[in-house]
Amino acid sequence: MNNHEIDYKLYGDDMQFVEVELDPEETVIAEAGSLMMMDDQVEMETIFGDGSDSDGNGLMGKLFGAGRRVITGESLFMTAFTNVGQGKKHVAFASPYPGKIIPMDLSELDGKLICQKDAFLAAAKGVSIGIEFQRKIGTGFFGGEGFIMQKLEGDGMGFVHAGGTMHKRVLSPGEMLRVDTGCLVAMTGGVDYNIEYVGKVKTALFGGEGLFYATLRGPGTVWIQSLPFSRLASRVFAAMPKEGGSKGEGSIAGGLFDLLGGDRR
């Protein structure tokens, strides 16, 4: 075991958080801003990159690791939480939006997991958080996640989050699954990921499902989310009152005032 071996417990249903139990000198790393609470004698330190030793111990190695995270749109920095006291201590991390937190034991996933670039939440120290380039141009341009996705490598525990309900699907060799590009959360390294055109112009223009979908071909395991954050954000943005708009749009009186052009200030 090259990574720190941590225990954990999940709380909640649709607004989850994960509580990690640390033995003395154990460390967990997390995205900046994901902390919910921590015990006394848990030391918090801001670090470059993911804190793993995969890029060497020198300054250039650390800068290179942090730079890879910038390419995926993440912060240069991560936060390390270490138990510097005696006995077991706890630190908890929360999802940034409603959904599920999925524990991923990399030792059971051949040491590698590919996920959407904003899915990572926390991991045992030693897990390397890098980038995965999509080799196919079509996948890069139209895949929703661009050319770059996150890559978790190691033999420790990692935690990813996604919106809505999570569905795990195991694909047998040659089995194919078509997925909305925004609904793909993560997949094991052996899954072949590509993008296909929906095929019909009328469906593409008026179907409301976009021009492309992802095709996932086994063998391997994929995780699908029912509510991508981009979909949630677009609905919230569409429902926001425009400048000069009226309040109380959902009421009968509000609709009547809108119809008559009344001013309710």
Rank of each mutant, 00 (worst) to 15 (best):
N2I: 12
H4N: 12
H4S: 06
Y11M: 11
D13G: 07
D13M: 11
D13V: 13
D14I: 15
D14W: 15
F17C: 05
E19T: 05
L22G: 08
L22H: 07
P24L: 03
E26M: 08
E26C: 05
G33D: 04
S34P: 07
D39E: 06
D39N: 06
E43V: 04
M44Q: 12
D50W: 00
D53L: 14
S54H: 13
D55Y: 11
L63T: 05
V70Q: 02
V70L: 14
V70M: 10
I71M: 13
E74F: 00
N83K: 10
G85V: 04
Q86V: 14
G87K: 10
V91T: 06
A94G: 12
S95P: 06
S95E: 10
P98L: 08
G99Y: 01
L113G: 02
L121K: 03
A123G: 03
G126N: 07
G130W: 02
Q134A: 11
I137Y: 05
G138N: 14
T139C: 07
G146Q: 03
G146D: 03
I148L: 13
M149V: 00
E153H: 02
G156W: 00
G158N: 01
V160C: 01
A162H: 01
G164K: 09
V170I: 14
L171S: 03
M176L: 10
R178L: 14
V185R: 01
A186M: 01
G189P: 01
I195Y: 06
K202G: 15
T203A: 13
L211M: 15
L211H: 14
F212T: 15
L216S: 04
G218T: 04
G220K: 04
G220T: 02
V222K: 02
W223Y: 12
Q225E: 11
P228K: 07
R231D: 15
L232M: 15
S234M: 12
S234P: 10
A238S: 15
K247L: 13
E249W: 06
G254Y: 10
G254V: 05
G254F: 10
F257L: 09
G261L: 07
G262T: 08
R265I: 07
